[in-house]
C-alpha cells in the first residue's frame, strides 16, 4: 500500500512501486485530467505538480512521491497562479483539441508561481518541454503574459 496526497485528499493505493504516477492517477485514483502523450518525458502532457513543482508523471515512480503533495489539473485552479492561467487560457482561446492543455496549464501555472513576471525567454524555457500538435504556442505565450499582468 502506498499513501498519496492528491489534490488535498489522501489515497491509499495498492500498486507496484515502479508504477508511474500518471497511471496511478488515471487508472487507480480515477483522475483523468492528466494525459498520456509519450511515456518518455518528451511531451509534457502528463505534467503534475509535486509540492508545486512541475514533474512528468509518466516516468515518476509512484513510490518516490512520498509525502509530497500531488496537484493535478483538476485542482490547480485553487492556486492563485493556476486560476490566473486558466482564466487567461479561456480569455485568449488558447485551446484547440485540448489534449495537451492539461500539461500546458500545469507547466504554465508552475512557471507563474515561481516567476510572476516571466519574459518571453523565460516562457519559452519553461514551456519548451510541452508539445502541442495543434500548434497553440503563440497563444500560450500570450496567455502567460496576460496572466502575469492579471
Amino acid at each position: 500500500m502506498i499513501t498519496l496526497n492528491v489534490n488535498g485528499e489522501t489515497h491509499r493505493v495498492d500498486v507496484p512501486p515502479d508504477m508511474p504516477l500518471l497511471w496511478v492517477l488515471r487508472d487507480v485514483v480515477g483522475l483523468n485530467g492528466t494525459k498520456f502523450g509519450c511515456g518518455i518525458a518528451q511531451c509534457g502532457a502528463c505534467t503534475v505538480h509535486l509540492d508545486g513543482k512541475p514533474v512528468r508523471s509518466c516516468i515518476l515512480p509512484v513510490a518516490s512521491v512520498g509525502a509530497r503533495a500531488v496537484t493535478t489539473v483538476e485542482a490547480v485552479g485553487q492556486s492563485p497562479s493556476g486560476k490566473k492561467i486558466q482564466e487567461a487560457w479561456l480569455a485568449l482561446e488558447v485551446v484547440q483539441c485540448g489534449y495537451c492543455q492539461s500539461g500546458q496549464v500545469m507547466s504554465a501555472a508552475a512557471l507563474l508561481a515561481r516567476n510572476p513576471n516571466p519574459s518571453d525567454a523565460d516562457i519559452d524555457a519553461a514551456m519548451a518541454g510541452n508539445i502541442c500538435r495543434c500548434g497553440t504556442y503563440s497563444r500560450i505565450r500570450a496567455a502567460i503574459k496576460q496572466a502575469s499582468q492579471a
Partner: peptide, 15 residues
C-alpha cells in the same frame, strides 16, 4: 528535450 528530466541544477527530476 532535456530539461524536464535532467533539471537545470543537475539534480535529476523524476529519477
Amino acid at each position: 528535450a532535456c530539461a524536464s528530466c535532467h533539471g537545470w541544477n543537475g539534480e535529476g527530476l523524476q529519477h
